[in-house]
Write a protein that binds this DNA or RNA. Structure first.
Lengths: 343, 343
DNA sequence: TTGTAAGCGTTATCAC
DNA sequence: GTGATAACGCTTACAA
């Protein structure tokens, strides 16, 4: 089972170095290569990662660090989608993946990750401002790709969406429907995505010459937060609500129902993410779709490229977002156009 | 930054072996130990995992293999809870964790995991019958703890719940309320948990001398499956429904509402898991609570113990489950007893 | 094209 | 208690 290079060498009658060359693609005679390949296949040989790492400095294992705020349902979804995207891409190249979750002691997290030298590169979520883990990782000299990015990360490699533009599109959609008292329920304060969506919302409102006083309410990406914020917005006389996530919108919808308001007739409502349940709400929820899976996919690809060419200039990718119009803003929609068009 | 044992030896004036002894707890003079410890601290030394692994055969990294059926919302929750439980426990002992997700090519999964010899042990979910990954891992000689277990795994180390007993408790609860036409919506066919819950349901019904013909309907752990199955159960004249998961119950609730049936007056409804939203449904959902986080926690603990003592006899843990009675079966409940009692 | 041999950074087995 | 020294399994010059 646990064959070594020496076993294979003995078996095939060549030297250990030659076997290694066959595996790693060095110059080998065709005949020799074939013979070795056959033995490799037959013995089901797998290189010992530790030994390889010691000798070459490469392990074939990537790290993924995610700050999941425990209890945030939002994270559950984002987390699993992102991870699947990363994992699919890595396993396609038979690369391993090591995972860190949660908000652990920042110093020791970075220490562990960088210190054990077991990782060829790291993907880390960078949405929280003043994040010591991201700072520490960036300071350490290890190939790194961010998912999301803070202002200070604009010189790093990252995969993100344009939150400002997306929020502008969302708000503009509500404006185009003739709404004027458009409220915005923000995401978790201190997160880049939440703050940027506020900026996008404000810039659209400003362009339309509309005030936002009393229409900007803090949320936290949860239905409960959305419920509470919506009660404030109802009192403020909102005729439309742009919620910073579909989860938030779900809570908002409940609050609107309880207040006896009709959606979208009295208040138009939209969310962000296009989570699974968005289309199944009553009424179906207009939202901004972002492809989280794809973000993970791209992040993994970038990381691999970065490792192969460490001198590569930073790669900054903005994944597209898409307005998906459903009945919660547009009212009845003919069946043939009920879904947003594909990206 | 990247100090080696030799650096430290030179720095402190002792031999490399002594530094290693300080780190790993060998016999060292107090004075020497202190001196070395100080240098260790100052240089922020971290051992090279690959080198350590090569020399000792230990890496301090555990593998976690999860078969997440893509698209199953059920999995998202189960998955993240379980993972957090495992991860918390491991990181407490400063052990690393490597993750495999999804249904990849079974042979290559096992090959990779076992072949690269980078893992001290593995935790794998064993709920699907005829699972080649679990079979392969069990056949490979690596410390292994299962989460869930199939019949053939009764000689392995595992952490599970007693699905039969839990389903019996659930069904008995409905029986105690005087219901006689109790339907059961199963989980995904071919999964141990789903099948065992069917057994528990049937044994309770049989004990009560009640028939189950037409009352056992296949589901898949999704709300949609629950919705569809419920329509069948309504047609079959069910006066109570035990759904195999809270997600399923959510779909069932919708179907009951649509049929103009009142819950619990016309049909009593209960789920399984006690997911976050269960208490927030209207009416709040009676369910069987299982502590998935704790299951992960225990699995990690067992694995560590197993690695420390490979001759340990298999450890089989059944985590308790708990009936949580809410209005969906019991109707109005005085506020002071609205929640199930703690375990 | 192939083989020899020198590391990579630890742990562990000896002596002293 | 401590220090040499031989593994561990691989990659990679350097020679042949």
């Amino acid at each position: 089972m646990a064959h070594t290079l020496d076993d294979l060498a003995a078996l095939t009658g060549v030297s250990r170095a030659t076997v290694s060359r066959v595996i790693n693609g060095g110059p080998v005679a065709d005949e020799t290569r074939e013979k070795v390949l056959a033995a490799l296949e037959e013995t089901n040989y797998r290189p010992n990662v530790a030994a390889r790492s010691l000798a070459s400095g490469r392990t074939g294992v990537m790290g993924v660090v995610m700050h999941v705020d425990a209890g945030l349902t939002f994270s559950d979804f984002y987390f699993s989608q992102l991870l699947t995207g990363i994992s699919d891409q890595l396993s396609e190249q038979s690369l391993g993946m090591m995972l860190w979750l949660g908000e652990r002691n920042a110093a020791s997290t970075v220490d562990q990750i960088v210190g054990m030298r077991m990782l060829d590169g790291v993907i880390v979520t960078a949405d929280t401002k003043n994040d010591p883990v991201v700072d520490g990782l960036r300071a350490a000299d290890i190939p790194l790709v961010l998912v999301g990015h803070r202002k200070e990360d604009s010189d790093a490699s990252y995969v993100d969406i344009d939150n400002i533009a997306a929020a502008d599109v969302a708000t503009s959609h509500l404006l185009a429907l003739g709404r004027t008292r458009i409220g915005h329920i923000t995401g978790r304060l201190g997160s880049v995505s939440a703050d940027d969506r506020v900026i996008g919302y404000q810039q659209a409102m400003q362009r339309a010459g509309l005030p936002t006083e009393g229409l900007l309410v803090e949320g936290d990406y949860t239905p409960e937060g959305g419920h509470k914020a919506t009660q404030e917005l109802i009192a403020a006389g909102a005729d439309a609500i742009f919620a910073s996530s579909d989860y938030t919108a779900r809570g908002a919808l409940r609050a609107l129902m309880e207040a006896g308001l009709s959606v979208p007739d009295d208040v138009a409502l939209m969310g962000f993410d296009d989570l699974e349940f968005a289309a199944e709400l009553d009424p179906p929820l207009t939202t901004i779709r972002q492809n989280i899976y794809q973000i993970g996919h791209e992040a993994a690809r970038s990381l691999v490229d970065l490792i192969e060419d460490p001198d590569m200039s930073p790669r900054r990718i903005l994944q597209p977002t898409e307005l998906v119009v459903r009945q919660s803003t547009a009212g009845e929609i003919p069946a043939y156009s009920r879904k947003g068009s594909g990206a």
